[in-house]
Design a protein around this nucleic acid. Structure first.
Lengths: 191, 191
DNA sequence: TGGTAGCTAGAGCGATCTATCTAGGGGTAT
DNA sequence: ATACCCCTAGATAGATCGCTCTAGCTACCA
């Protein structure tokens, strides 16, 4: 696992973006942390920091989508799945001393008005998360339109709870969001 | 209005933070945009960028809280107030070409793991927003514990919807969050 | 009129930023 | 062995970062 230099660069950059954001993460910092030679970064990513950013955003987005689907897939029903999702997020926050939250949100807010390619990359991730969530709710018997609304609400609440939790160093918001979304989802399921 | 140099610096910095974040905003950029001499920034804020950041966070937090209270205060009931709040946010997003969202969220995510004083400043803002929201729901007849949960859920959903809206350049998430929170609040009110 | 405080004004310092450059190592194919 | 290519390696350029410094302007008071 992670034997190649390129993989080390991608993984390290993803972790640094999650904690310090896009502008807050330097190329020097990336190569140092990844134990990679400086020249290798521009060999693998000739488009520079922006190209590296695009690939990291896409990769992190896919990895988190896989994680979401694994968590919800392992649960006996979709309400329990939602519960496990928020509980898992709270657990990661606590274990990382409130450093590791969503790998996309920070970058998304930073680049929304500065880099159109990066903004599109974050939008693509959110769209695919929404699509995945919609599919899961449809599978549980919710009609398409309502399913998409539930998916958007779930993701928005999760992201918002991440912000409040990281700022206050508390999982209170994550717990509140969990209970609320559980109830909304339960009410939307066919009886 | 905004006659003094100090006020111009504070207002300009607040606007730049909202669009480009904390690390993405430079001191040179601030003085240029504010048409202020460079020395004045360090005259008024001897603590440098961090002190300026703290004051801007506190000020923006207070201004937005006043705005929230004005919007909700002008509404005939609290559900309509919630409606107007989300609608207003969507309107500002559209009018600013999805540049102007929450002035605190971007900075909060950026500094959470890099500057403890700034992190505390953002936490203080969120706490006071939660307190204000809680008070409003209590006034509408909701018991204290549930009122705080509603306030947290409201703020988290709003912040999350800001992220999705800015990234996708759509107000869909803001609309979905609006309807959902309206219903949750309505259900929590005494009948 | 001279002194003082508050603010303006911007040159410039050291550090750090992203990115480019050249040079060389190491494996594979011929 | 030789040629070739992928990748390593890091010095360094040029711009920008936050910040410090000195000097001067303006208004008010003695």
């Amino acid at each position: 696992m992670e034997t190649t230099t390129k993989d080390r660069i991608l993984n390290t950059t993803a972790e640094l973006f999650r904690r310090y954001g896009y502008t807050g993460t330097g190329m020097k910092q990336i190569v140092t942390e990844a134990r990679a030679p400086f020249g290798s970064v521009y060999h693998f990513f000739p488009g520079g920091k922006e190209q590296l950013g695009r690939e990291v955003i896409g990769r992190s987005g896919q990895m988190y989508q896989d994680l979401f689907e694994a968590i919800i897939g392992a649960a006996p029903d979709v309400v329990t799945g939602v519960h496990d999702l928020f509980s898992g997020a709270a657990e990661v926050l606590r274990q990382s001393d409130y450093a590791d939250a969503c790998p996309i949100a920070t970058v998304a807010l930073e680049v929304a008005s500065t880099s159109e390619p990066l903004r599109e990359a974050t939008a693509g991730v959110f769209e695919s998360w929404i699509a995945a969530g919609t599919a899961r709710f449809v599978m549980a018997g919710v009609d398409e339109t309502r399913a998409r609304e539930l998916a958007i609400l779930l993701i928005a609440s999760l992201e918002g709870a991440f912000i409040l939790s990281r700022a206050t160093r508390t999982t209170e918001a994550m717990g509140v969001a969990r209970v609320a979304i559980e109830q909304v989802v339960r009410a939307a399921l066919p009886s």
